[in-house]
């Protein structure tokens, strides 16, 4: 089948898609966007998290056909050119990245959180990121990164005003 989907603001088309293929597979193998990761492919680890019409989803659990005529935003669509998104900057600065395999999913999940909640409390951060597994960091520096990202975001908004 053919799938038409807007990915990171661009109209994309994938041909010869099997009915059983996931949105994750189509992004990674057919549209050249391997940023979203395939760590469990059953919705447990969150490494494949993308925005589907502005809502974070595990793209491994979305059938490719369900993305027809919808908007997808992946980790590759967060930075503007060379300028990282404040969430991405914060992950690097806080040391929240080790092997980095969980990072794309966590960055998208954290991006969603700081956009919804300007100054999230620690329990709010923990709850929002509970669906994203990380095996390297023990999460403490990921919490640091989200707190830092929230500060960066609010500083950015203040200077924009």
């Amino acid at each position: 089948m053919r799938v038409n989907v807007t990915v990171n603001g661009e109209q994309r088309q994938a041909d010869d898609v099997w009915e059983g293929e996931s949105l994750l597979y189509v992004l990674r193998e057919r549209l050249g966007l391997p940023g979203s990761k395939n760590a469990c492919e059953q919705g447990e680890c969150g490494s494949c998290t993308v925005y589907l019409d502005d809502v974070p989803v595990c793209s491994c659990l979305v059938a490719a056909g369900q993305a027809q005529d919808r908007e997808v935003r992946t980790v590759e669509g967060l930075a503007e050119g060379d300028a990282l998104d404040p969430v991405q900057e914060a992950f690097v600065e806080a040391g929240a990245v080790q092997c980095g395999f969980c990072t794309p999913g966590l960055v998208v999940a954290a991006h969603d959180l700081v956009n919804r909640v300007p100054d999230p409390s620690d329990p709010e951060i923990r709850e929002a990121l509970a669906g994203n597994l990380c095996r390297c960091t023990g999460y403490e520096k990921i919490l640091d990164a989200v707190r830092l990202a929230a500060r960066k975001k609010s500083a950015q908004q203040k200077s924009a005003r």
């Binding site: 966007l33 990761k37 980790v75 991405q88 960055v107």
Partner: peptide, 14 residues
């Protein structure tokens, strides 16, 4: 770090 947060770091599965 930058490549990893951008989703552009090439893991073996990529």
């Amino acid at each position: 770090g930058n490549l990893k947060v951008r989703g552009e770091y090439a893991y073996a599965s990529d």
